[in-house]
Design a protein around this nucleic acid. Structure first.
Length: 198
DNA sequence: TCATTAAAGTTAT
DNA sequence: ATAACTTTAATGA
């Protein structure tokens, strides 16, 4: 968790409830709040000229939503959409920033999270330009698995649908499916009841 | 080789 | 039931 729930509450954060597919904010909104998930999953996405969805990340319990936008003066370049029913703490940007100035240790945590995100983006960027679907999907799976304690082969159940994986790597669903199958043949992943084990 | 289109099967709501 | 997701196959860049 980024910031302790009771701390956010004591600063006056409100709890907001969203239903699946509700927008928490949309592209071109002005960032005015710090958001932190208490329950449910949220995706950050945007659409290219042809209308194809690109999923930037999927966030869940304890994670902040688009907090990078609170430190710069720009409108959101992406949407935040609830994937499930969600509860989100919402704290005014000004209160949040003032609080951070007084609490370097929490500032440090925010830094760590932003860095983690940048790191992932760099890894994905390298592999996305590599043009090889298998490399892209593997970069994604490596990233997701990196947060697990157990690092055994096939111990990690990918918590994404194939469609989501495709959306995050920029390949089409069909290619994601075929690539994952060939990875199964190559013993890179195992598939059990359609679930991908890596 | 991969995206796209279409069609059909499967799962989740 | 109906929508959302998965899979296969054909075609074209």
């Amino acid at each position: 968790m980024v910031i302790q729930e009771n701390i956010l509450r004591s600063l006056g954060a409100a709890t907001n409830t969203y239903l699946s597919s509700d927008f928490i904010f949309v592209e071109r909104d002005t960032p005015r709040y710090y958001y932190q998930i208490i329950e449910g999953e949220v995706k950050l996405n945007s659409y290219n000229e042809e209308g194809k969805e690109s999923i930037h990340t999927i966030l869940s319990y304890g994670q902040a939503i688009g907090e990078m936008m609170l430190f710069i003066d720009n409108v959101y370049p992406m949407n935040a959409v609830a994937l499930t029913k969600c509860k989100v703490l919402k704290l005014s940007k000004t209160v949040f920033l003032t609080f951070l100035k007084q609490h370097p240790e929490i500032c440090f945590t925010i830094n760590k999270n932003l860095s983690q995100d940048l790191y992932f983006r760099l890894l994905m960027m390298q592999n996305i330009s590599s043009q090889n679907p298998a490399a892209k999907l593997r970069a994604l799976m490596d990233y997701l698995k990196s947060f697990e304690e157990v690092q055994d082969k096939y111990s990690f159940l990918i918590p994404l649908t194939r469609k989501q994986m495709a959306g995050m790597t920029g390949v089409c669903v069909e290619t994601a499916i075929r690539t994952i199958k060939s990875m199964e043949r190559d013993k890179i992943v195992k598939i059990k009841d359609r679930k991908i084990l890596y």
